[in-house]
Design a protein around this nucleic acid. Structure first.
Lengths: 107, 107
DNA sequence: ATTATATATTAGCATTTTATAATATTATAA
DNA sequence: TTATAATATTATAAAATGCTAATATATAAT
């Protein structure tokens, strides 16, 4: 069914966001485009690994890139991507408001 | 740093949504609480597998449950969870509006 | 008490994801 | 034209995830 395709697309979209490094990349690009050399300074992972994460996110269409000399500049492809992350953080905030959830999260 | 904890929580939150069966579960609970026996009719997976998915989602705090006789009734824990899925679908809609993305997605 | 129904748990295997390390590519500078 | 800088790609091994099958638990019905 066609709805199953949408469900799969939605799951794949979330999969792309389901990694700390990739959340950090989104946050890094939140305020504007950045080259890889700038992103990597905020990430404490290896360059090749960052490149892989960027590749995953670009394939999924969350980010875009252009070349500028030897640098590659990345940017968030759709502002609505930020809204998704924001919405998740809103739920997390509500959960943490419920005190009994805190221990579960911090383990 | 404390921000790293938030980033990890956010990624784990998305990880919980990053599976077609779990998206379908959210959709099933969207209009109200349902017992496992009702959810399973919409899912075409084995009962034990559904139970595992429900367990993952409950541990992450996306859904809640209560017992009613021999049935277990699940519900979405926070309405804002639906907003997260909705926000993702909005981005997907924008992406599909960009025609060159379609082939990439349907493969 | 026994059986049936609804749901959960566990173990084991297969698949997927991730990180590292090594190497490749591309563009610039010397 | 050689070297350097920025980024990407590939192979591989480790870790995490997901599915199936079997079993367990809890409640209800006979």
């Amino acid at each position: 069914m066609a709805e199953d395709i949408v469900v799969k697309l939605t799951a794949d979209f979330f999969k792309t966001l389901a990694h700390p490094a990739r959340i950090k990349i989104i946050r890094s690009l939140e305020k504007g485009e950045r080259c890889v050399c700038e992103i990597i300074e905020e990430l404490d992972i290896e360059q090749s690994n960052l490149s892989q994460h960027l590749s995953v996110m670009k394939k999924q269409g969350l980010i875009d890139s252009r070349k500028d000399g030897q640098k590659v500049i990345y940017r968030i492809a759709y502002p609505s991507v930020l809204a998704v992350v924001g919405a998740a953080e809103k739920t997390l905030g509500e959960q943490i408001g419920d005190s009994q959830s805190i221990l579960k999260f911090l383990k």
